[in-house]
């Protein structure tokens, strides 16, 4: 449904997006992950046709974006990170305006707008958008992104300003939307959020897609065989030194440590920490954060 072929965008000689290739099938919830400045928003702006790529191409449902931006915009729903509406209009009036721009007739508008307001929890809110909290604007942004019943929904940092209830509602809406066959592309730097709602993800670093696929594949590939060891002692433990040790973080006055090593060094750790009185020693599986940080570090060091 969403396809990018060697997508590149260069600003003043610096590539913001560098040779990005991506293929997101229909009905998928795809998370575009990356730290700030990785090129996520630039990628999205090219996908929705607001900026033209320096080279390469994007396709939505087989239609090339750069050459058919109007046709593509009819097929997509978009919510930017800094979502904004007309402050002097109500949520209903803002959606009404948006629906008219999509060329929807009056009967469809009258049915669709109350449904969407109810879906995002803004039904019955009569005040103008100028008086909305950021979270309420974000909810309205989701409603706007769905107004034209799009084939693909593209959301840039959708949970940035939502409260816990808003986040839960957002996850429910996105899942329901995907169940109806709509493709969802979510851009975020919050890994936990993307991992909870997305079925697959791509990791952007310095404008390059360093990895993409389903979660379990990413975790397996990103783990790279690193071993995490957690150790707690009664007395302060000495600082460890081992050829396989990659990093060591100490806490609680050197009574707790988290070690990352290339191989299993539990025995060596037990031997070194033994005199301090071991309370706990266990080998831990790397969490998602470790996996994705390893992708960023790999890209940075390469």
């Amino acid at each position: 449904m969403i396809r990018c072929e060697h997508l590149t965008k260069v600003y003043n000689g610096v590539p913001a997006v560098d040779d990005l290739c991506l293929d997101i099938p229909e009905g998928e919830i795809f998370g575009l992950l990356g730290p700030n400045g990785a090129g996520k928003s630039t990628t999205i702006l090219m996908v929705i046709g607001l900026i033209e790529p320096t080279s390469g191409a994007c396709y939505i449902d087989g239609t090339e974006v750069a050459t058919n931006p109007i046709e593509v915009k009819r097929k997509i729903g978009y919510m930017p990170e800094d979502v904004g509406f007309y402050a002097t209009l109500t949520a209903e009036e803002n959606l009404e305006y948006s629906a008219k721009l999509y060329g929807m007739d009056g009967a469809t508008r009258r049915k669709r707008i109350p449904d969407l307001l109810s879906l995002v929890g803004l039904e019955g809110v009569t005040k103008v958008v100028g008086g909305y909290s950021k979270g309420m604007r974000q909810r309205l942004g989701i409603a706007k992104a769905l107004i034209n019943e799009p084939k693909a929904v593209i959301l840039d940092e959708p949970t940035a300003n939502l409260d816990p209830q808003g986040v839960a509602d957002y996850r429910r809406i996105i899942r329901e939307t995907a169940e109806n066959g709509t493709t969802v592309l979510v851009s975020s730097h919050i890994l936990s959020e993307v991992s909870k709602v997305c079925t697959s993800a791509g990791i952007l670093s310095h404008g390059k897609l360093v990895a993409s696929g389903r979660w379990e594949d990413l975790a397996r590939a990103g783990g790279s065989g690193h071993v995490i060891i957690r150790v707690e002692t009664k007395a302060p433990m000495p600082e460890f030194s081992h050829p396989s040790l990659i990093s060591a973080e100490y806490a609680d006055g050197h009574r707790a440590a988290r070690l990352v090593a290339e191989t299993d060094i539990c025995d060596a750790v037990a031997e070194a920490a033994g005199p301090a009185g071991i309370r706990r020693l266990e080998r831990d599986e790397p969490d998602l954060e470790d996996v994705f940080l390893s992708y960023y570090h790999e890209e940075a060091t390469s």
Partner: peptide, 14 residues
């Protein structure tokens, strides 16, 4: 200022 320009231009309009 109201950040509505990006949303406006995301509609199928020239």
């Amino acid at each position: 200022e109201s950040k509505s320009l990006k949303i406006l231009l995301s509609h199928p309009i020239y």
